[in-house]
Design a protein around this nucleic acid. Structure first.
Lengths: 264, 264
DNA sequence: CGGGTCGTTGAGTGGGGTCAACACGGGTGG
DNA sequence: CCACCCGTGTTGACCCCACTCAACGACCCG
């Protein structure tokens, strides 16, 4: 499983820039401690000291915060290949938690040697790019929560997930099954699970998706994306050239130039 | 003005960790191109190519996104000493804008030599810490927008600003004047300016603040913070030990250990 | 003095929250 | 095998927070 894990990570990084064989080996040698997490269990909690860096291997995870009244706000949904902690260099205790939404595995990367990898320009670039997308997503979520109605929030969240899954080769075709419970979506877009259920029915009646116990089946990915209206430019660079929709996508070449290497 | 600007930046960084004289000189030599920005003008716009890194010298600025329907979501409010771009290493076009909320100045740091500074462990640590707080703030905003009612959102936003201003020596005492228009607050917490006005009146009747044309005067900072209920632990490390409220603050010493230096 | 930005207030509306009750399925233990 | 329970999904009734539209007032500027 360790080698699979290592492959996943390098595979992900390679989509963001060319890596040498030595680069890949350097990354792969760091992947350790695979672990299984059942749904609704935590990888780490708000207040925990930061230790190794956790990498999602399979399943769906999320970053979230719990409030005094027990309600939960999900900050980001993590897919296979994503890093649980957006900040590779912080050493402060976590101010958020990461938990599994659906059963899945993680691996751990110890941080000091990880920091060493930033000596390698190609890897520094790739890791910085993952960071870039992490930021861009959280900005989108902020806009979503602040300025849009429930249906748009939901449609955009689901659409984001389809783009990300597709970008990393985790889905193909016009149908995607998300192993998410309705409460997870509700806590992501800041509405109650009751209201989320109704909004989901709405989309269902439009033929975009189907609900099953414990999963959401998007039966018309293209239609869903169309319901968003605009092309997700904040994901430019993540989405490959193979999927033009409305605006033209930045050519793959440009991607390489997106992030400066650390000048070392 | 350039030397003032340089001092501001090093002063800010020094609050996050000890710097050598050489460190400070290295930073100061990069500060260039001071510029004045009138209120409601942009420093850069969504879609612009990333060039130099802008540093706020004075005034209030904000990161924001404009939506198709013309509405605006503010992503962060930037105070003197803050960097306009959270991501020092990205080279992608901006996916958000930065504008002045109140008349103020910026300076520019050219990126390649800035990246060189990461060779210096103390500076790498300090810059990473600023990043850490930037992240922590955006997570708080996400929670705010997703899970809280208008009054709490507003109280927490204002309270955040008081803590940050105080932490960086930009305010003292129990009274703070914010050079913000009501629409700015409304666009920050995701409500209409009409509703914000009413909520403001509410707080005003509780004796916490006063409104003037173009500014909000917080007349009872302590009372405002009390209205939040909890201590802003997400700012631990930023807020000095001098201001204990409810929970004990992490001792200054620990701060040094918050961020790993780049292993170089 | 006039126009523009900013603030304030009112009236009416509706989106989304709250509180219930219930249905369903899958697990657990007897 | 059934009884039970708990997590999940669904629906209805009710209500209120916040949005919308609108008009007006205050202040600042030219």
């Amino acid at each position: 499983m360790l080698t699979e894990a290592a492959r996943l990570l390098t595979g992900r990084l390679e989509r963001l820039g060319t890596l040498s064989v030595a680069d890949k080996q350097a990354v792969q040698s760091l992947v350790q401690h695979p672990a299984v997490h059942e749904a609704r269990t935590d990888v780490f909690c708000d207040g925990d000291q930061r230790r190794e860096l956790h990498l999602v291997l399979s399943g769906f995870f999320c970053r979230y915060k719990l409030l005094a009244d027990g309600s939960r706000q999900i900050l980001a949904i993590l897919l296979p290949g994503d890093l649980c902690d957006p900040n590779l260099f912080s050493n402060a205790p976590y101010d958020f938690s990461v938990g599994a939404l659906a059963r899945g595995c993680t691996a751990a990367l110890s941080r000091p040697p990880l920091h060493e990898l930033f000596r390698r320009p190609a890897l520094a670039r790739a890791f910085s790019l993952t960071r870039h997308f992490d930021d861009a997503l959280s900005r989108e979520w902020l806009v979503n929560l602040g300025r849009r109605g429930t249906e748009q929030r939901l449609v955009r969240l689901l659409s984001e997930l389809t783009w990300r899954l597709e970008a990393f080769g985790l889905s193909t075709g016009n149908k995607i099954t998300l192993p998410l419970v309705q409460a997870d979506l509700a806590d992501s877009i800041g509405v109650t699970h009751v209201h989320l259920c109704r909004t989901l029915k709405q989309l269902q009646s439009e033929g975009l998706l189907r609900t099953e116990r414990g999963r959401i089946v998007i039966s018309d990915v293209a239609g869903l994306r169309k319901a968003v209206g605009v092309w997700p430019s904040y994901l430019a660079g993540l989405i490959s050239v193979a999927t033009p929709l409305q605006e033209p996508v930045a050519p793959r070449r440009q991607l390489e130039a997106f992030v400066e290497p650390l000048a070392i």
